[in-house]
Design a binder for these strands. Structure first.
Length: 270
DNA sequence: AAATTCTCCTGAAGGC
DNA sequence: TGCCTTCAGGAGAATT
């Protein structure tokens, strides 16, 4: 499932192939994504030059002359560079066709999206109220402390709230809380500043490591199958319910928080 | 206002 | 090539 590191990898992977090029055509085979792709999407963007590909949270932003395409990979989305005229496969829902190559979007569960927004992009409702980027200085212990103040909601659901900080998905929320020694169910307002500081560091560290790992897929991006293999071996808690904690050996416990599987060590995380 | 639940979707995994 | 049920999850929308 694409988390921030995968989106970062996606942006870095496609950008060199399409930056500076004119978008010639948008082929929509199935526009029924999270939000329907606009029927007039090609009128809006075709003929414009792509100047830059950036990421905001888990959104891919393609900056054209007069506005941007806002892409989201949802649960199962991927964007690949296709250099030859390979026939589209099942679930290949749209292509962005440039000179010489195209970006092909595949998404079996169709939780992703492709939207057009005139400049300024941050005025789009999906972008307008996003919190700080976790890997920048804008996300720090002071900001997190303010966000947590007086909150009774579990700390885990708070750090997964994109209004508080973007890009922390379920896997990395679990991992970061383990790293910081904080029980995911603890009320956000009852975590000390010192421990929030540990959490900030843990979030930055786990995301940065994952990006570094995802980066190994980068050089083969065009040819790879799009499944960065970094997770499995590095995960300390996610997907390890019942297995021994690597810190103390106690079996890891699983609970549901906000409809999401939450794995933690009752001994190491308070 | 804040917190929780619902919702979209399909493939994988598990039970029998 | 077994069929059916359950589960997974990003994140906005709806509900409590």
């Amino acid at each position: 499932m694409p988390e921030l590191p995968e989106v970062e990898t996606t942006c870095a992977g496609i950008a060199p192939h399409i930056t500076g090029q004119v978008l010639r055509q948008v082929v929509v085979r199935d526009g029924r994504l999270r939000w329907p792709i606009a029927d007039n999407i090609d009128e809006l963007v075709v003929g414009q030059t792509l100047h830059e590909v950036t990421r905001r949270g888990k959104y891919v932003l393609m900056h054209f002359d007069e506005g941007g395409l806002i892409g989201h990979l949802g649960m199962t989305g991927s964007m690949r560079i296709v250099t030859r005229a390979e026939p589209p496969a099942y679930h290949d829902h749209f292509d962005l066709c440039f000179d010489g190559c195209l970006v092909r979007y595949r998404d079996p569960r169709r939780f992703g999206s492709l939207l057009w927004q005139p400049y300024p992009l941050q005025q789009h409702p999906l972008l307008a109220s996003l919190g700080p980027e976790p890997l920048t200085d804008a996300f720090n212990v002071d900001v997190l402390q303010v966000a947590c103040r007086g909150k009774k909601q579990p700390i885990k659901t708070l750090i997964m709230d994109s209004k508080k900080v973007v890009g922390v998905g379920n896997i990395y929320a679990n991992e970061a809380l383990y790293m910081a020694g904080i029980n995911p169910n603890r009320q956000a307002g009852r975590v000390s500043k010192q421990r929030l500081s540990l959490l900030v560091c843990a979030i930055k560290q786990v995301l940065a490591e994952a990006i570094a790992q995802g980066g190994t897929t980068l050089r083969n991006f065009v040819d790879s199958d799009g499944n960065p293999g970094y997770f499995k071996q590095r995960l300390q808690v996610y997907g390890r319910t019942g297995e021994p904690c690597r810190g103390c050996g106690e079996p890891l416990k699983e609970v549901r928080l906000g409809q999401r599987s939450t794995v933690y060590c009752r001994h190491c995380q308070r």
